[in-house]
Design a protein around this nucleic acid. Structure first.
Lengths: 121, 121, 121, 121
DNA sequence: GTGGTCTAGACCACC
DNA sequence: GTGGTCTAGACCACC
């Protein structure tokens, strides 16, 4: 429940839900936190949560029943898309971090291979 | 100047300075922010900043001149160590993120190759 | 620049732009009012205007150039959709108003025919 | 209780009462809001309300008993007239909206028939 | 100047 | 209780 500064908070909320879906921690049909609960737990403004929830609703990732709450309604196809999207983000972030540390493409690949073989925790 | 929740904040402060050094944004001889200034800008507790600065002093990455401020004093060898250290962190974070999205070692390598060839902005 | 109370203001802003597009008063490529200007003229909060502009951007009806302004970028196909959408709204509003005045389907048709033939200003 | 900009507000007040009468929401003998109450609820100038009430009195749609309030006193014949009047307004508004969207007489009739048959909620 | 994000808080509608 | 809309206003980034 901590937010870093690179992406807008509402986007981080959405990404976190997408990741939870991919990992199977939540699934279609599940009720998610109410906007107020989320805002309280994350100590952010309810309006910020609402923007995230509204955008998730617009892409039909969740559906909202007035007075009842918000429910996941993502299809398997959407899950695949989210997985691609999140993987792309993770990859780009990784590559840009490595490059900013001074590694070129070749070195990045080598380091990854070494790390994967050497066994990372 | 935003901190996420995974690492202790003082550690994130140190890492940020290490990365700035590697990237050449700051170098040996440069004066860095006073603890007070840092705490104000980052809106964190001065004690947290103090711990970070103390640890950087212990490994002789910076030195503090009383009444004058804190100065970078890292050697080239230290820079190399920092680079390895930071690369390891970035790699481990990348690998664990990809795995939590459901990718195995083979897929991770493939994705990286594709992304590097496809050209990421 | 007056808003009635039935639809949310941000929706009325969007509908007004859709109608202007259909009527040819504005067209693709045109720059529209800045959010601040619109808010000032309509005497509403800039945040309300922003929500309308953001939603128009999400459906690719306009595009926003940071620091420069917002421009219409609707395609002809979108215009056709907007026309259907607005016609549907107008029709439904008309029918519900007539029914609430006590007219049935048959009478509504008759009244419309009479009015169209009798010549309305 | 929201007013749009096309008609003068006092006229909109009168029309709203006429519609309420036609719909049977209020009837002859009922006491209506005091001018002061109306102005407060609708957040408009008391003078505007006064003009509406005065005009309703002139056509003997309401009567004001000093110190007691204002009461509906419309006859059935007046109700019929109001119904015609309101229907005419609704029709004219509908036709002008459809024409401004680019529909001709023939299309307007067709659309209405389709909508009525298709069943609008 | 432009738009983008966020907070704080009011008030409403639906249940 | 739930979400939806709106205002007021701060602060930021890009130009």
């Amino acid at each position: 429940m901590g937010f870093d500064s690179s992406l807008p908070i509402y986007q981080q909320i959405i990404d976190a839900y997408k990741k939870s879906l991919i990992r199977g921690e939540i699934q279609t049909g599940d009720k998610i936190l109410s906007q107020r609960e989320y805002a309280l737990k994350a100590r952010i403004n309810p309006n910020t949560v609402q923007r995230a929830y509204r955008e998730m609703e617009m892409i039909k990732m969740v559906e909202t029943l007035r007075g009842q709450g918000t429910y996941i309604c993502a299809t398997d196809i959407m899950l695949e898309q989210f997985k691609e999207e999140m993987a792309g983000q993770v990859l780009n972030y990784f590559i840009s971090e490595m490059k900013s540390l001074g590694f070129d493409d070749h070195e990045i690949k080598n380091r990854l291979n070494t790390q994967l073989e050497g066994g990372n925790k």
